[in-house]
């Protein structure tokens, strides 16, 4: 750099009257330590920000309605399935099942007529169904045995229809066909109400 010695000399002249140095390096170290601490704090804040945001989001997220929460059964109680729970209807063989079974087992040309509104099981477990061609068909379920009696069916057809009714009754759990009346003490006093 000898060719630029003139410039270097001129620059050296500028710094010739250098004043005394201020405080020692301890001050620089303190400044550096503060800067390092700020840096660590910034890194920590950057790392914690997503966690805090997630926690806040979870905290303010709308929870399930309280009614649903309280309606949940206790996990310690074994759930018992009772299809009739919550109702006062007596257990019995549903009319619809018996009618469907008979209707499906009838041969071509024989069909059920429109069912009356007051259709129901009669005494002794009998159900009288009207036929479209006139006449009636009587279904009987007594002591686990099913029978179908009508003048419109041959004995074989009647047996097939009775078997269909029995199959439906067994599928329903062989319930009592005619539900027992509640005892007098359990009957509601409608007149009093």
């Amino acid at each position: 750099m000898t060719e630029h010695q003139d410039v270097r000399s001129a620059l050296a002249e500028l710094v010739a009257d250098e004043p005394d140095l201020p405080a020692g390096t301890a001050d620089i170290e303190r400044r550096g330590a503060r800067r390092r601490n700020r840096r660590y704090a910034a890194i920590g804040a950057l790392a914690l920000t997503p966690l805090l945001a997630g926690a806040v989001a979870v905290a303010v997220w709308p929870s399930a309605p309280p009614a649903q929460v309280t309606a949940q059964p206790s996990p310690s109680v074994e759930p018992v399935f009772d299809p009739n729970a919550g109702t006062q209807l007596a257990v019995g063989f549903p009319l619809g099942s018996a009618v469907d079974a008979v209707s499906g087992a009838l041969p071509a040309g024989v069909a059920l007529a429109e069912l009356p509104m007051d259709l129901g099981w009669g005494a002794g477990g009998t159900l009288v169904l009207p036929l479209a061609s006139g006449g009636t068909l009587t279904v009987t379920i007594t002591d686990g045995a099913c029978g179908v009696v009508t003048s419109q069916l041959t004995p074989a057809q009647a047996t097939a229809a009775a078997d269909a009714v029995c199959a439906a009754w067994v599928a329903a759990g062989s319930p009592p066909v005619l539900p027992a009346d509640p005892s007098a003490s359990e009957r509601p006093d409608l007149a009093a109400r």
Partner: peptide
Amino acid sequence: LLCGDWHLADDLVQDALAGLFV
């Protein structure tokens, strides 16, 4: 020589050395 001010030069050196400390 960069800034032409001794006070500013002190600041610049302190800043650079503090950054080096980190």
